[in-house]
Amino acid sequence: MSIQVKNWSVFFEKYPVLHNIDLEFNGQGIFAVIGPSGCGKTTLLKSINRTAELDRGFNCSGKILLNGEDIYQKNDAASIRRRVGMVFQTPVALPMSVRENVLFGPRYYGEKNKRKLRDICERSLKQAGLWEEVKDKLEHPAGELSGGQKQRLAIARALAVEPEVLLLDEPCSSLDPASTMLIERLLTQLSGTLSIVLVTHNLFQAKRVAHQTLLMMAGQVVEYGPTGQLFSKPVRQETADFISGLTW
């Protein structure tokens, strides 16, 4: 799945948040987005699954293409959101059982076959690395899970509708190192079959898992390229400063 962002700008009311973003992310693997707080990472991510427009005063110009198709062309945000899953910074467990959390999307999209639903539940939880921990408490309220488990549940819930792209907004920022490692390993596995865009504040995390990394500042692209290159031989001075910790 290729993601192309062309001359993309976002405003809230008249206040500009993203300025003429141009970037291309081809195929599978993990694409990390780094940058100082408030530079527009979340807004960029939410633009890619059309949830940014839910916020008041949203305005945009430019194009975002998924496999060459302009996702803002049609007035059908829901089908884009189904294809582009998103996991948020704070782990969210919907107020229902673990199983119903995972099946929330599939049920909405009309899956009624019990066998299929059970298979989707098991497959998604396995993909999210949560199956072993919850297989005996699928009927328990999801609120009982730990933070790290909830975050993996959110990943399972997103995977259950078989998205082509998975967006993650600082998914580990409220988790302990062990849970973080678990999720990183998971993302690496998942990146074999689906495109992943990962916003992170943790430069080491970007270094560990990302094939490509994008540095943003003040709503603009500073530099992006293969992760190794960005960290070892940055082209721009801002990048060098940022990764050496001078500008955060």
Binding site: N49, T51, L54, A77, A78, S79, I80, R81, R82, G85, M86, F88, T90, V92, L94, P95, M96, F104, G105, Y108, A154, R157, A158, V161
Partner: peptide, 24 residues
């Protein structure tokens, strides 16, 4: 966050209302 989670799955507002928001 519930509403946002639902929206990010492409789920309609009405479905969110009757499965999550109103019961809560």
């Amino acid at each position: 966050q519930y509403r946002l989670t639902g929206a990010a799955l492409g789920v309609s507002r009405w479905y969110m209302l009757h499965r999550v928001i109103i019961p809560q």
